[in-house]
């Protein structure tokens, strides 16, 4: 603290001023070099692509501005469904994943069936491709005839997403629980807290903080997989684009859907990076390597 104040008041020596000027020149130089190399690289890539023999046709079937504008409303409507599914799937996965992770930490012989069930679940659903889970849930659950009415495809799709992603997310939670130092649990138990209160008040809050970047990354992966619910017939962005493609024989609507998904992912990706960097900075406090 006082060191900072001293530096403020003191005029740096000539050697230090020389060093600072040198560092400024270095950083100006590296910015200029990176700008130049980026421009050269972009021009080379661009020239290569537009000089391929089929470029004109590809451009008109994938990047047609008129089709882009006309397809946007329908794809956007579908995209809103993806957003709704994503919100419910994220919440469902967080809750269900946490539940599975908690089941796996239970001690005691009575809980053996629950532990085994949770372990079997994570093994099974981490191995099963999402598309197969979608088909099994999408066509299997309605076949059971729980309800008289038809269950909407987006609900079935959400269930399939939650089932698959909870298996991954519960493993992330479990890694977090194991990463909390045993001495924390010891300290909590020594105060007279029981197993569940220790888990809820001491272990879980620290575990979730440790694994938040990894969790956010799983949710980034999920936000693009919500597009797969279209295989069950839900009219989402992908299915909306498909309909537009069938009408115009132009693939630009797929690009529209792709752009929307990327725009959705970008803030979440940036947020994940920012949060990971913040955590790292906090853990390394003051050191530069």
């Amino acid at each position: 603290m006082t060191g900072d104040l001293d530096q403020e008041a003191r005029r740096p020596s000539d050697i230090e001023l020389g060093r600072r000027a040198f560092r400024r020149r270095q950083s100006t130089r590296s910015v200029l070099v990176s700008v130049a190399s980026t421009i050269v690289f972009a021009v080379v890539v661009w020239l290569t692509i537009i000089n391929t023999p089929g470029w004109a046709r590809v451009q008109s079937t994938f990047f047609d501005p008129e089709v882009f504008v006309s397809a946007l409303p329908r794809v956007w409507d579908g995209f809103l469904l993806n957003l709704r599914v994503l919100v419910f799937a994220v919440i469902g996965t967080a809750v269900f994943g946490l539940l599975i992770a908690t089941l796996r930490t239970l001690r005691g012989a009575v809980f053996f069936p629950l532990r085994a069930l949770a372990a079997g679940y994570t093994d099974l659903f981490r191995g099963l491709p999402l598309i197969i889970v979608l088909y099994l849930v999408g066509y299997g659950i309605p076949g059971l005839r729980f309800t008289e009415e038809r269950i909407p495809a987006e609900v079935l799709g959400t269930i399939a997403l939650v089932l698959t992603y909870s298996a991954y997310v519960s493993e992330v939670f479990r890694a977090g629980i194991e990463a909390v130092h045993p001495s924390q649990r010891l300290a909590a138990r020594s105060l007279g807290l029981g197993h569940y209160k220790t888990l809820r008040l001491i272990v879980m809050p620290q575990a979730i903080r440790k694994v938040t970047p990894a969790l956010m990354n799983d949710f980034v992966a999920m936000q693009k997989d919500v597009g797969l619910i279209s295989v069950l017939g839900a009219v989402d962005a992908v299915r909306g684009a498909q309909i537009e493609v069938a009408a115009s024989f132009d693939y630009t609507p797929y690009v529209v859907a792709g752009v929307l998904f990327v725009l959705l992912a970008l803030p979440l990706i940036r947020l994940t990076d920012w949060y990971s960097a913040k955590l790292r900075a906090r853990e390394q406090m003051g050191s530069i390597v």
């Binding site: 001495s183 924390q184 010891l186 300290a187 909590a188 001491i202 620290q206």
Partner: peptide
């Protein structure tokens, strides 16, 4: 304990 073990 030796290492305080406060809850961070």
């Amino acid at each position: 304990f030796q290492h305080y073990n406060l809850f961070p």
